[in-house]
Design a protein around this nucleic acid. Structure first.
Length: 496
RNA sequence: CGGGCUGUGGCGCAGUUUGGUUAGCGCGCUGCGUUCGGGACGCAGAGGUCCCCGGUUCAAAUCCGGGCAGCCCGACCA
């Protein structure tokens, strides 16, 4: 849906990087990926910061600067659109949850207890009952679901909420695991198990996989989690897993089948058409600001971010190379023309700041196309169009700029996705023994029959820092019909 | 909670082993000028309780004792 037309895949094919194009200076201390030594260190300067406690913000909390936030807004819009297409509606529930709610579902309690932030005072007084700041909203939402669901006619109940959640983290990591993060969490109730499962899968593929691959241009593997990796309180967790630029795995989004676990403790019952009282079957699913981190780590290169145009706050920057009346006029006219064509455009005419400084900065931010307007070329009626993701420059006649920009924007997401997929494939190895898994899983993904690993094998892998990212069928499809895990393939990797 | 390491202008660091004038360097910042088709340069300038407390000494960023804070690796996790 982002780019379908393959006919102009060759636009910049023969435009090659020219001359020396030095990159940005190495960044200050602090890295998005402290463990990935090869990974560029300075994205946080552009996109965000996880401020650590220095008598300021709480350790591990996150500040997203405007550029990063606008990327998030675009991701948000893409996901929201798909959620609505799946029939769910947005709603909002309280930030504070009575502590007693969190104690109801046994596994849920166990899973989240260590991560809770608990408020014991309010209005200058000790509270009668402490409240927790939501780490996820299953409990409050189900409290209300119990009131809202009476009849089979009330089902399915499909609700989504965009909000922030808070979890105590032993080791915060910028974007990937911060104390507070923004996300979307969907919660649904269905009349039967089959429908609930189908909905969980619909969200997994039609919302998450589609948005990640088509919009964020990050290819994902889909499958379900092992019992060990499953969400606390779920009977089955479905997941989208991607490989980052350093060959490590990142969980991009999850969709859980909750069975009747929560329905039973919160008393969510309905009368079916025969009048019999039944518990609902539920799902919950979420994706977070972690996706910004994924975008950075999957597509970033040594010169900064590379953004798919659909997510880029600006698609085009028209740059005045130097102060000159004709340049200024031509650049202004080009910017207007591109805006009229519907592009998000910025005119950079700050010629008091050096050309190099400005280009490096736009490159760092990942703006997909730069149009450089300088006096020499302009005299010949030309400008330079630079394709960020390829770092390719080509001279283009003024009249053809809009077309050139279109071509770059059309191919950028596809190129990024193809590149990421090729990278993942090149680092995925079929393994048939446990020893092979150790090697292959460290270098990337190992695909191995689940029987070869098993639950004890999973423990041994954990000791080596490896985890089973997901289980899927041999051909990569979902084991969606409740088949036994035995016949499945495990994807093993090193995770963030 | 285990195992490493570090606290020095806004940021990154040197100096500490072997105490000694006025505590340096890079980046950033301010001003002026020259530049500016890929992070330029010159000159001038602002900016420091050397983490804290105590001790030794003629003299402590440096040595001694005691605190505190932060980072990295592991265990928890979207």
């Amino acid at each position: 849906m982002v780019d379908a037309d393959a006919s102009d895949a060759d636009v910049a094919a023969d435009a090659k990087p020219e001359g020396r194009m030095p990159g940005p200076r190495p960044a200050a201390k602090g890295s998005l990926t402290p463990r990935g030594e090869d990974f560029p260190r300075w994205y946080q300067e552009v996109v965000a910061r996880a401020e650590m406690a220095d008598n300021g913000p709480v350790r591990g909390t996150m500040v997203i600067r405007p550029w990063g936030y606008e990327i998030w807004e675009r991701l948000q819009a893409a996901i929201d659109e798909r959620i609505k297409a799946a029939g769910a509606h947005n709603a909002y529930f309280p930030l504070f949850i009575p502590e007693s709610f969190m104690r109801l579902e046994a596994e849920h309690v166990e899973g989240f207890n260590p991560e809770l932030w608990v408020v014991t005072q309010g209005g200058g007084r000790q509270l009668d009952e402490p409240v927790v700041v939501r780490p996820t909203s299953e409990t409050v939402i189900n409290h209300f679901f119990a009131k809202w669901v009476q009849s089979h006619r009330d089902l399915p109940l499909l609700v989504n909420q965009w909000c922030n959640v808070v979890r105590w983290e032993l080791r915060p990591r910028l974007f990937l695991r911060t104390t507070e993060f923004l996300w979307q969490e969907g919660h649904t109730a269905h009349a039967d198990e089959k429908e609930a499962r189908a909905y969980a899968l619909r969200i997994l593929t039609d919302v998450y996989k589609d948005a990640m691959e088509e919009v964020a241009a990050i290819p994902v593997l889909v499958g379900h989690k092992t019992a060990r990796e499953r969400f606390a309180g779920a009977v089955r967790t479905w997941t989208c897993e991607a490989m980052m630029g350093d060959a490590k795995a990142l969980q991009m989004g999850t969709s859980h089948e909750l069975g009747q676990n929560f329905a039973k403790v919160f008393g969510i019952q309905y009368s079916d058409s025969t009048g019999a009282l039944r518990y609902v079957w539920q799902t919950s699913w979420g994706a977070s600001t972690r996706l910004i981190g994924a975008l950075i780590m999957a597509h970033g290169d040594d010169f900064g971010l590379r953004l798919p145009p659909a997510l880029a706050p600006l698609e085009v920057v028209v740059l005045c190379v130097r102060e000159d009346d004709a340049v200024r006029r031509a650049a202004g006219a080009l910017a207007d023309e591109l805006r009229r064509a519907g592009r998000r455009v910025h005119l950079d005419d700050r010629t008091d700041s050096g050309f190099g400084r400005r280009t490096v900065d736009w490159e760092l931010k990942g703006v997909p196309v730069r149009v450089e307007v300088g006096p020499r070329e302009l005299a010949e009626g030309k400008v330079t169009v630079v394709t960020r993701h390829l770092r390719a420059k080509e001279p283009v006649p003024l009249a053809a700029v809009s077309d050139a920009v279109d071509r770059v924007c059309r191919r950028a997401a596809r190129d990024l996705r193809d590149e990421a997929r090729a990278f993942r494939e090149a680092r995925t190895t079929a393994a048939s023994s446990f020893e092979e898994v150790l090697d292959a899983g460290s270098a990337g993904f190992a695909r191995v029959p689940w029987q070869v690993v098993g639950e004890e094998g999973e423990l041994r892998l954990a000791a080596e820092g490896l985890t089973v990212r997901c289980l899927q069928r041999e051909d990569g499809s979902l084991a969606a019909h409740g088949e036994a895990d035995d016949g499945l393939v495990a994807v093993v990797g090193r995770a963030y």
